[in-house]
Each structure stands twice: as C-alpha cells, then as structure tokens.
Amino acid sequence: MKVILIHRKHGGSRSIELGRWSRALLSLCCLGLPLGMIALGFVAGQESQARDVRDNSLDSLQDALATQSTELEGLRLDAERKLQAMTMGLAELQARLTRLDALGEHLTAMANLEDGEFDFTQPPGMGGPLGGEFNVEYLAPDLTGELQIFAQRLDQREQQLEILESLLTHRKLDDQVWLSGRPVEKGWLSSRYGPRTDPFSGRPAIHDGIDFAGKAGSNIIAVAGGVVTWTGTRSGYGKMVEVSHGDGLVTRYAHNEQNLVDAGDLVRKGEAIALMGSSGRSTGAHVHFEVFKHGRAVDPSSYVHRTRR
C-alpha cells in the first residue's frame, strides 16, 4: 500500500510504501480513535448518570433522615412531657398518701385503738403459700390509666376517712357535753338533794344540790365540757364556779377553797376547775353541786349516776 503526500507550497509529491503492520497500525488509529472517543463518552455519561443517581439517593436519604430526626425529636419531647406529668402526678399521690397516713393515725388515736392495731407507718401485712402460675401474655401497663385509677381510689378513701373523722369528732363532742359523773376525784356523798334538816338552824329546809365531802385542797372537776359563765364569791355559796353546757344545762360548784378558772374559759369534761374547801355557809371541806335545767334546779343525782346513752 502506497501513501502519496503532496506539498501544497512547492507542488511536489512524495510516496510512502506502507507494510502490513504499518497498514494495520494506521487502520487501528483511524478506526480505534473514534471508537475510543465514543467509548469514553459512553463511560463518562454512565458515570455522570450514576453520580446523579447517587446524589439523588443521598438527597432522599438525607431528607428521610431529617424527617425521622424531626419525628424522633417530637416523640422525645412528648415522652418527656408525659414523664414530667406522671412525675408530678406521682408526687401529688405521695403527698395525699402522707396525708391519709396522718389522718389514719389521728383516727386511731381518736378511736382509742390499741398500739399496733393500725400502724400506718408500716406496709400492710400480706402473704400466703406459693400458688400456681398463670401462663398469660404479658402486656405493658398503661401507667397513666393506672395512676388515674389509683387517684380515684384515693379520693374514695379520703372521703370515707373524712366522714369517719367527722363521726368520731361528733362522738367525742357528744361525750364532752354529756353531763354525767361526780364532781370530785375522791370523796363521799355527805348530803342529798331535797328536804333535810338545816345544819346551822336545825330546822327543815330544802337542799337544792348534793354535797360531796373530801379532803381540803383536792380537785373539783367539771362533769361535762362547757363555758365558765360565772366565777367568784356569792352569799351563802362562798367561792363558786358556774359552767354552762348548752341545751339549757348549767352546773354550780360551791364552797371552794380556790377557783382555778375564769369567766369565759372553755373547760373539758374531767378538768379541774376548783379546789375543795369550806368557804361560805359550810361546816367543813366539801363541794356543793347543783344542776339547773332551763333555769330550774333539778336533782343532780340522776346525772351523777347517768350512763352513756
């Protein structure tokens, strides 16, 4: 194969004889170069497309991750709010339990129960032999619902205990105003109510109270709770204390050595209100005890021997 080269400037020509390998190399260059370019372009296009696909995939993944992160943050905040609400609810329930324990101890004292019969500082005793186990599917408890149920039970217990406290309080108040018993801690009945011989004149007379003799200076006690309406010295009575108990009942304690209360004082049943003496019209240490009902003197003996209704 010959290749003729023509010089444009001088117009001359030159021929070159190509051998078999030279022809093959020239053919390879003439054909291989375009094919190589095409192949390179194809590869470059494939790489660009793959890069675009990778970029799109990465963008999608990043968007999905951002969405999931936002959702996860929302779930975390919601869980924190629920946990905070449950913590506050639990703290409130613990405070109410503490109040119930205190109320229970107060009711135990009011009811005069034995020590240890109801010990609110200790968990309740429970037990029993090991029983058979149930094969049931375990379900996670709804803590919010359980706390609500527990709160409702606490409401019921609080109402029941408050009602019980009110009943016990009224019972104790009734016991306080229930007029009964003797006006002395120690002593003996020395004169009854009604007609008798006057110890000074020797003539028949009406005795409007009963007398309890005892040791001078011993305690004179209130036979019921009430308000002191009068205290001082009165003719014939000597040093005297008068107590109003409500419902029209008034008691008097006379011939005292010393009065221990003042007008307006609140006194409880069994409280010492005076010391036994012999002031006023008296032959010796004793307390003259009178009971008035709606302003009229009545026999105190029925109240002295009175029992709880």
Score class of each variant (00 low, 15 high):
residue 308 R to H: 07
residue 160 Q to V: 00
residue 298 V to R: 05
residue 296 R to H: 13
residue 79 A to D: 07
residue 58 L to C: 00
residue 224 A to T: 01
residue 67 T to P: 00
residue 222 A to N: 02
residue 137 E to C: 01
residue 29 C to S: 09
residue 286 H to M: 03
residue 73 E to T: 06
residue 87 T to I: 05
residue 111 A to W: 11
residue 124 P to W: 13
residue 127 G to K: 06
residue 141 P to D: 12
residue 277 G to T: 11
residue 293 K to V: 15
residue 118 F to P: 00
residue 206 I to R: 11
residue 243 V to N: 02
residue 250 V to F: 13
residue 197 T to P: 01
residue 261 V to W: 05
residue 307 T to Y: 03
residue 263 A to P: 02
residue 174 D to N: 07
residue 207 H to D: 10
residue 239 K to E: 15
residue 260 L to D: 03
residue 89 G to D: 12
residue 233 T to A: 12
residue 117 E to D: 09
residue 201 S to A: 08
residue 154 L to S: 04
residue 202 G to T: 06
residue 61 L to S: 02
residue 7 H to E: 06
residue 4 I to N: 02
residue 145 G to W: 11
residue 27 S to V: 05
residue 259 N to Q: 06
residue 163 I to V: 05
residue 200 F to L: 08
residue 308 R to V: 14
residue 79 A to G: 02
residue 121 T to S: 15
residue 63 D to N: 04
residue 83 L to I: 05
residue 147 L to T: 04
residue 75 L to R: 11
residue 13 S to V: 00
residue 225 G to L: 03
residue 250 V to T: 15
residue 283 T to S: 09
residue 244 S to F: 15
residue 113 L to C: 03
residue 300 P to S: 12
residue 238 G to H: 11
residue 113 L to F: 14
residue 169 T to Y: 14
residue 14 R to C: 00
residue 272 A to T: 14
residue 260 L to P: 00
residue 110 M to I: 09
residue 145 G to S: 14
residue 132 G to Q: 07
residue 144 T to R: 10
residue 202 G to A: 05
residue 207 H to E: 10
residue 307 T to D: 04
residue 174 D to Y: 09
residue 76 R to C: 01
residue 1 M to V: 06
residue 260 L to I: 05
residue 176 Q to P: 00
residue 76 R to S: 10
residue 84 Q to M: 06
residue 264 G to T: 13
residue 236 G to E: 12
residue 255 H to F: 09
residue 307 T to W: 03
residue 165 E to P: 01
residue 144 T to Y: 08
residue 83 L to P: 00
residue 18 L to V: 07
residue 80 E to G: 01
residue 16 I to C: 00
residue 250 V to Y: 12
residue 94 Q to S: 07
residue 10 H to A: 05
residue 140 A to S: 10
residue 201 S to H: 04
residue 166 S to L: 12
residue 117 E to V: 13
residue 57 S to K: 07
residue 11 G to S: 03
residue 277 G to R: 05
residue 226 G to S: 08
residue 86 M to T: 05
residue 177 V to K: 07
residue 157 R to V: 03
residue 143 L to I: 13
residue 146 E to F: 12
residue 130 L to R: 04
residue 139 L to P: 00
residue 134 F to L: 12
residue 210 I to Q: 08
residue 201 S to R: 06
residue 68 Q to R: 05
residue 2 K to V: 07
residue 95 A to L: 06
residue 100 L to G: 02
residue 93 L to M: 14
residue 181 G to S: 03
residue 267 V to A: 02
residue 94 Q to N: 07
residue 193 Y to M: 03
residue 59 D to N: 07
residue 129 P to C: 13
residue 276 M to E: 09
residue 244 S to I: 02
residue 221 I to R: 08
residue 126 M to R: 11
residue 148 Q to S: 11
residue 61 L to I: 02
residue 158 E to Y: 04
residue 278 S to N: 14
residue 144 T to D: 13
residue 229 T to E: 15
residue 170 H to I: 04
residue 285 A to M: 02
residue 83 L to R: 13
residue 92 E to V: 11
residue 118 F to N: 03
